[in-house]
Design a protein around this nucleic acid. Sequence first.
DNA 1: CCCCAACCGTA
DNA 2: GTACGGTTGGGGG
Length: 995
Amino acid sequence: MDLCRPSGYGFAMKKDDHLFLIDGSGFIFRAFHALPPLTRKSDGLPVGAVSGFCNMLWKLLTQARDTSVGVTPTHLAVIFDYSSKTFRKEIYPDYKAHRPPPPEDLVPQFALIREATRAFNLPCIEMEGYEADDIIATYARMAVEAGGDATIISSDKDLMQLVGPKVHMYDGMKDRQIGVPEVIEKWGVPPEKMIDLQALTGDSVDNVPGVPGIGPKTAATLLEEFGDLDNLLANAESIKQNKRRENIIASRDLVLVSRQLVTLKQDCPVDVPLDALSLEPQDGPKLVSFLKAMEFNSLTRRVAEATGAEAQAIEAAPVDVEWGADAHGPDLDPGEGKAPAAVTAPGATDGKRPADLAAARAARFASLPINRDNYETIRDLTALEGWIETARERGLVAFDTETTSLDAMQAELVGFSLALYDEDAADDGAVIRAAYVPLTHKAGQDDLLGGGLAEGQIPFDAALAALKGLLEDEAVMKIAQNLKYDYLVMLRHGITVKNFDDTMLLSYVLDSGMGGHGMDALSEKWLGHQPIPYKEVAGSGRNMVTFDYVDIDRATAYAAEDADVTLRLWLVLKPRLAAERVMTVYERLERPLLPVLARMEERGISVDRQILSRLSGELAQKAAALEDEIYELAGEKFNIGSPKQLGDILFGKMGLPGGKKTKSGQWSTAVQVLDDLAAEGLPLPSRIVDWRQMTKLKSTYTDALPGYIHPQTKRVHTSYSLASTTTGRLSSSEPNLQNIPVRTAEGRKIRTAFIANPGHKLLSADYSQIELRVLAHVADIPQLRQAFADGIDIHAMTASEMFGVPVEGMPGDVRRRAKAINFGIIYGISAFGLSNQLGIERSEASDYIKRYFERFPGIRDYMEATKERARDVGYVETIFGRKIHYPEIKSSNHQVRSFNERAAINAPIQGSAADIIRRAMTRIEPALGEAGFAERAKMLLQVHDELIFEVEDDAVDKTRAVIVDIMENAAMPAVSMAVPLKVDARAAHNWDEAH
DNA sequence: CCCCAACCGTA
DNA sequence: GTACGGTTGGGGG
């Protein structure tokens, strides 16, 4: 049983209190069929039933006292069906057997209506094994016993048996009360005889049998005559009509079963007490936020007025359309909601369902020409204000910034572009209007004296103030491509973009694995259009100029086109989210992370120049000493850094054994090869390996990192990419802070240069074995689950299972092999790979794998099932529903196919782990804020399974507790993991000691 | 000036 | 055997 409301227990129910029980499930179906179909304007998400539900709730909560019901609720709950597996199925297996699956357009609304209930700050109650009607019956009884009244908001005849002096019904859609007289009027019997009546008539919808030929009228007459069902059955012989008498006698047993089926259970073991249902005050902002996300404009306005909430200032809530594991509507198998919706062929333009809208949009924009001649240059404030006003009316605008640098932390704003959409424009060319607003273009081309500003540009501060109003307006959806960049640039100007979508992230969520998500690729793919290449505007190489030196007319063509293309991409991609069931992935795992990452990048991390400089010196000395030795041993000088020259020396000139060739026919000089030679006792290869390590550390880290220290902030600001891996991981660049050395002592010294500010510590929190835990969960392996539950060394356990060696006193090499196998499994193991990793024969590696699968058959089953699924549908999924496509999984080329199979096996594991830490990252800042540590603990870096924070000394212990808690529970409530997640966290002055 | 291969750092 | 990004050398234009 689930009470999805955070508030605690309310006031005890007492005499004269009034409990309202809303039949949520009944309402959904009725509203869906009774109300005209309604879809969310921006993306076609079906929301008709949600709209009806919200309007009904609002009406109940505000107007109940005056008119419709005549009473004011003191307690209220919304009750839902949980699943079709109820006790009635056990009594009668055919119960509800013929019920068709819910309509496609209704499925997403189940979750939304629960979300709506929470937004209204009302408890929503559901219980496994019981229907909503039984829970309603139970609470109604409890309310009456407590001395109060109950009103059931429903018009379902199945509930009418409950009506009595203290229990009422109210039809929220017809605004009509149903009391004892109304029941008699409609059915011809009083409420207490409804059970008998239903048992006689049966119910074709629920597949309750009943007596053939007896409908409500006859049943009522019979009950009138015989008093009740038992008496009727006992005296059935006395019925005059032949056919009727025979039927009743023949159906006797089934009628008794029917009576059991239609009798509501008034003693469900509810574990949410009545008192917890007391009506709480509305949370205006929360409700407005939800309604806004649903785009119910008039209700949003009414609610904002009534609650005094500032609608303008409230952000639309991320909408919780759980298509994934935690979605459950009545009779909805959890997997059912995730099935790919067929995108209907272009031409299907009824425009009602998301798939139709998506198909229609794709077809339309694939051939809608882009005319750069229509772009405007906005050169005065009045014109800009006009565009912004129109953007507010439309509630939708694409924007893009033009700057002097690709580095958002260094970039200076040069101008920005806007694009507007007019769905109803008469002329196809006017459907989208785009404009560029130049701000700081220089007067001269690039001559030394051309320092002045070009004419005809709005003063920077005035334009930015106007732009701020637009970007921070919650009521206007802002659309951009790779928004994190623009977000950060605007953040540096004191502007926080609110209510946005990012076309790059849309594409990433929809088409991961199907190619890049950059604007040029997307434009080509969806619009059949090639945007002006940047280098044609700003030049390239030595001739390249920063954007402020680009001629304003050329800049307009380029910049306005970017906004234009972005808007078109949004129109094509956004409806696909709902159609292809990845709305939740986008709204929960992608979009909310964007501002989090922007803030992390803005904060940067302190790096100690002195330490790096000293390390550079040390490394240079060590490398120089090794160089001398190497030349001595080789007998000549050569470029050690050139694999070609090195290979020729080692395997050509010196004729060392064990040479392997690379793809291109060169001698391989990879560590593997050199290590093998070193093991033979040869000094040269070993020196070369050491030299490589020293020069690698020097060039990639100690020499390069200081160059990334920002001139103003004095910190290093990496850039995270949200959309450059197929699996959902982030990547880091310029500099890459996700590959700072840790494995060797020499390398770890580099980490000592990453330090906390005075009075602070660096706190590192990392997931322990997260990928193996995910594997244990998804493949459901009993031994793995047990080992993680018991906190046992997982590699030792594997070794013990495989080789029959006891965990106590296990030789290191045995454990090492098991560890390699465990990693191999995650990587989609092959005998070839494992033999390479362990330096053993292929046949031996094959034996290991065979033995592993014998001990863990569930893993083999998981791998086979994953491959098969990838072949069938073309993609695999993480536990949160992120899809990763493998278009080449059926390649006839064995190499290509095998590679895709291994990647497909790895992706759900790596990707689920990535999703988990994403969830943690979006929750940690709010959690720290609630704990009062927002200003004292800052998240700085993410390294796949590790988060690094900078924390005030005094706040370390408390923030660590908050962070560990959020991280360990990050999968909940969407996924309840079968194994616990474990997080280790330490704080120290530098990253080496904290890790 | 651009691109690729080889190598190697991380999870 | 999975997923990345950065540096270097070297070939081509």
